[in-house]
Each structure stands twice: as structure tokens, then as C-alpha cells.
Amino acid sequence: MKTYYRFAHSGVWLLMLCLLLGMTNSRAEQETIEITKKDRCPVCGMFVYKYPKWVAQIYFTDGSAYFYDGAKDMFKHIFDTPKYTPGKTADMMTEILVTDYYEVELIDAKSAFYVIGSDVLGPMGHELLPFKDQESAQEFLEDHKGKSIIRYQEVTPAVIESLDRRG
């Protein structure tokens, strides 16, 4: 009887652990908040639903979510959070997602590879094109005359300004 109890007890713990691990998946792996026809980019005011290949998302600790028509505007929000969302700071962001250009699926913005300087324009002109892996980014760079591949930490206000100036 004791052996059965230990087995059953450990089985319950294993089940609880699996459930807990399942709940820690990011929004990129779960259902995301549905973008409606009313959702506008807080940076440029464009309706985001029109550009599903370009969507970026930021979630805040208070449960609010903001959608963008490209990674460039998302970074503008990150760099000047109080301007676009008064009362909020970048430290309050819980998740930042971008859409992989080839796969058209949400990925973590901080782990993405971004191609800049390509011949592909986004809804707001020259854009950072996100990819989930370096190989895809390299292939795109070669096929579309990209200038370089950068990571999240390397995106600066100066990089964003240079993309806007290329217009």
C-alpha cells in the first residue's frame, strides 16, 4: 500500500509540474490577443489588421497590449514609452513580439535576427525585417540586398532614424 501511495503521490506532482510548465509558455506559443479592425499603431496611427505580415506586439504588466504595423514603430515605442503610452515605462513591458518575415508567425523580439537596409519596404517604408534564426536572415539579406543583420540589443534610436531617413 505504501508503494502505491508513493507512486500515486509522485504522479500527482509530475502532473502538476507539467501543468505549471505548460502555463509558462509565451504568447508567441499560445493564442494571442486578437487584433481587431479598430486597433491602431500607437506610434503612427495606422490600422494594424491591414498588415498581418508586419505585426509586432507589446504586452504590459497591467495586461494591456499594443499592436504595431512593423518592428520599426514598435522600437520607437520602446525607446520613448511615456510619449506613446503615458503612465507606462519600458520596464513595465512583459512581452515583446514580432512577426517572422518568412514564417509569418509571432516570435520573441529579443531573440530575433533583424535585417536592415534591404529592398523590401514595410507599411511605413524602410523597416527592420525579423527572422527567428540567423540562417533565414542571411538568406533574406543575400536575396534582397540587405546591408546587415543585427540583434535586438543593437537596435538603437540612431538605427531607427537611419531607416526613416532612407525614405
Rank of each mutant, 00 (worst) to 15 (best):
I160P: 02
I160A: 02
I58W: 00
I96E: 14
Y66H: 12
G70A: 08
G117P: 02
A158V: 14
A28H: 04
F75S: 06
F131S: 12
P42S: 10
K37H: 14
E29P: 00
T89F: 03
S26L: 08
S162D: 13
V98M: 05
M1S: 13
M16L: 15
V48G: 05
S10T: 13
E139G: 10
L97I: 05
K72D: 03
T99W: 12
Q153R: 11
M46E: 06
A56E: 09
R165M: 04
H9V: 05
G45M: 03
I116R: 15
E31Y: 11
E31K: 01
L121I: 04
H9Q: 08
E95G: 07
S10I: 10
Q138D: 11
Q153S: 10
I78S: 05
T85D: 11
R40Y: 00
A158H: 00
T99V: 06
M124L: 08
S111W: 00
L14E: 02
L141P: 10
R6T: 03
A158K: 12
E139P: 01
A109S: 06
F75C: 08
S64C: 03
A137H: 10
Y59C: 07
V48A: 05
I149R: 12
I35R: 13
M74A: 09
P123Q: 10
I150Q: 07
K132G: 15
F7M: 08
C41G: 02
G117E: 03
Y59E: 13
H144Q: 04
L121P: 00
A71G: 13
V98Y: 10
T89Y: 05
C41Y: 01
P52I: 00
Y68A: 11
I33C: 02
L14D: 03
T99Y: 12
D73A: 11
Q134D: 06
G117Y: 04
H144N: 15
I149T: 08
V12N: 02
F60W: 06
D119I: 03
M74E: 07
T3L: 11
P42G: 06
R165Q: 12
K38T: 12
Q57R: 12
G70D: 07
D143I: 09
D80H: 09
L17Y: 02
D133I: 05
A65C: 10
I33V: 13
I33N: 05
L128V: 11
K2W: 09
K37N: 15
